[in-house]
């Protein structure tokens, strides 16, 4: 460590108590402010000045945000590793996420971040009405985010797209996600047969409608084949992906129906964990904003004391920051 970093450690911009050998205990204000910090009712007894208290709170919050970054960091590591080693599951999985919804949510969060920053400004200026309005708007943004998230989740879950071992998608969703915009073409299917399996692709489709496909790790289910014999299959989508004879042929190439990779469920595991933990943070953030809102309505904030607004603001911006990375990483692939 050189003198440079020592400079950083010195925190020159702060007022400190001077310890002397006399019994003089009065705080010595060196910051050159002409007003007295020491008499604010919000100054806790163990601090000497409001500025010291404010800076301590800020550093504390930043350290806490650092822990949050490392907490999410673990998930980003899991993401990076599976993205690097199994890119196919991301290519496959992202088709199930709606970039419009994700993008809307990004905008919503950015806007709420802005209203939060504005709230801090109003708190500093002591403008109570505007502060309250901004906090309410921020809360509204948070709610909006969660509502959209709810629709995204439920849309996946009704189709069996659950994380991990509960992942048992039915084929509707794949069609809907991929064919929705292009109309579907399986009626024109030419009935190619999957090698070694004794039923037509058309039958196969029907079977899929009746019964969700097996999750890759569950011992394969046996769809009722036309001939009444049990055929062991690994998973229908995987089979469909088995080349031109599979579903790809049926839907006539355009758009290409991707095959389901073996570890597809890992993508959804990561997706649910990342967005779920993020969603949890949104909820915690909402509680914190609600608490600050109550205080703001009592009118306790002003130029001398707005630390809670500022710190909750920092937290809320972090929630936004995480989403700024989650959005392209999960929704915008290829």
């Amino acid at each position: 460590m050189g003198s440079e970093s020592r400079g950083i450690l010195q925190d020159s911009g702060r007022t400190r108590r001077r310890l002397t050998m006399t019994t003089e205990t009065q705080a010595i204000d060196k910051s050159g402010h002409d007003h007295d910090h020491g008499h604010s009712p919000y100054l806790q007894h163990h601090f000497d000045t409001m500025e010291q208290q404010f800076n301590s709170g800020k550093l504390g919050m930043w350290l806490f945000l650092a822990t949050e970054i490392l907490l999410f960091g673990g998930l980003f590591v899991a993401y990076a590793i599976y993205r690097a080693l199994h890119p196919e599951i991301f290519e496959y999985g992202h088709h199930f996420l709606d970039p419009v919804m994700g993008g809307t949510n990004t905008a919503v969060l950015i806007l709420s971040s802005f209203t939060m920053a504005a709230a801090v400004r109003y708190a500093q200026e002591g403008k109570k009405t505007m502060l309250v309005a901004c906090l309410v708007l921020t809360l509204g943004g948070a709610c909006g985010f969660l509502v959209i998230k709810y629709f995204e989740y439920s849309h996946k879950m009704v189709h069996g797209v659950f994380p991990g071992k509960f992942y048992a998608p039915d084929d509707h969703i794949l069609e809907e996600e991929l064919m929705g915009a292009h109309g579907h073409g399986h009626e024109e299917g030419d009935g190619h047969h999957e090698e070694g399996h004794g039923h037509a692709a058309g039958d196969h489709e029907e079977a899929a409608h009746e019964e969700p496909a097996a999750a890759p790790m569950v011992v394969s289910q046996t769809p009722p084949a036309a001939e009444g014999e049990f055929v062991i299959e690994k998973s229908q989508i995987a089979e469909a992906g088995g080349g031109p004879e599979g579903l790809v042929g049926i839907v006539q190439q355009e758009p290409k129906m991707p095959k389901r990779p073996e570890k597809a469920h890992v993508f959804f595991g990561i997706y649910y964990l990342m967005t779920g933990l993020h969603g949890l943070h949104v909820v915690i953030g909402m509680c914190a904003i609600g608490w600050v809102l109550l205080k703001a309505m009592k009118g306790v904030f002003g130029p001398e004391y707005f630390t809670p607004v500022d710190l909750v603001g920092l937290y809320w911006h972090l929630v936004d920051l995480i989403w700024i990375f989650l959005f392209p990483l999960l929704y915008l692939i290829d």
């Binding site: 659950f162 991990g164 071992k165 790790m217 073996e262 570890k263 890992v266 595991g269």
Partner: peptide, 15 residues
């Protein structure tokens, strides 16, 4: 999460 849902990050049975 691995124990409850088998997300398949650490557990080789789930990939």
């Amino acid at each position: 999460a691995e124990r409850v849902m088998g997300v398949g990050i650490f557990d080789s049975t789930y990939g």
